[in-house]
Amino acid sequence: MPTGQRRNPYYQGPVSDHFDGTYFFNPDGIEPLGFRDLMRWQFGGGRDRWPRLVPSPYVRAKPDARVDGEALRVTMVGHATMLVQVAGLNILTDPVWSDRASPFAFAGPKRVVAPGIAFDDLPPIDLVLVSHNHYDHLDITTLKRLQERHRPHVVTPLGNDTIIRRAVPTIQVTALDWGERIPFAGIRIDAEPAHHWSARGTGDRRMALWAAFVLSTPAGKIYHVGDTGFHGGVNYKAAQQKHGAFRLAVLPFGAYEPRWFMKGQHQNPQEAVMGMQLANAAYVAGHHFATFQLTDEAIDAPVKALKAAMADHSVSPERFRPLRAGEVFDVPVA
Rank of each mutant, 00 (worst) to 15 (best):
R7K: 13
P14Q: 14
V96E: 01
P252K: 09
G69A: 10
G29C: 06
H79C: 07
M76N: 04
T142R: 09
R181Y: 10
Q241E: 06
L248Q: 03
L129I: 11
A281D: 04
G88M: 02
L122T: 05
K242D: 02
G264S: 08
R321T: 14
G116T: 14
E31A: 12
H153F: 04
D161G: 15
Y236Q: 03
I222L: 04
A255Q: 07
A249G: 10
A211P: 08
V250Y: 02
T217S: 01
Y283N: 06
A80T: 15
W41C: 04
R166C: 09
G116I: 13
I182P: 08
D28K: 09
Y58W: 15
H243G: 03
R247D: 14
P27Y: 05
R188E: 13
T81V: 05
H195T: 14
L176I: 11
W50T: 09
R73C: 07
G275M: 09
F24A: 00
V74I: 13
A285L: 07
F213Y: 12
H153E: 10
N90P: 12
A219Q: 02
Y223E: 07
V84F: 03
Q85P: 11
A272G: 07
L129R: 06
Q42D: 06
F25A: 00
H288E: 06
P57W: 01
D300R: 05
W41K: 15
G179F: 01
I182G: 08
A238V: 04
D68R: 03
V250R: 01
G254W: 05
R188T: 11
A175K: 02
L53V: 05
N133A: 15
P2K: 14
D68F: 13
F320G: 03
P317W: 00
P63A: 13
R49S: 10
V130T: 04
D330W: 04
F292H: 11
A175R: 05
D126S: 08
D126C: 08
G244S: 06
G226N: 04
V225S: 00
R111T: 10
V155P: 13
T228G: 10
R111F: 01
I164T: 02
H150I: 03
D64K: 15
A191F: 05
A167P: 12
G88L: 00
P269T: 10
D161N: 13
A80E: 00
T142L: 09
L146N: 00
L38M: 12
E297N: 06
F320D: 11
V59P: 15
P183V: 11
P124A: 12
V113L: 09
L92D: 06
D330P: 11
Q85C: 07
G203M: 05
F119G: 03
W41Y: 14
V155L: 01
N160V: 10
P2L: 02
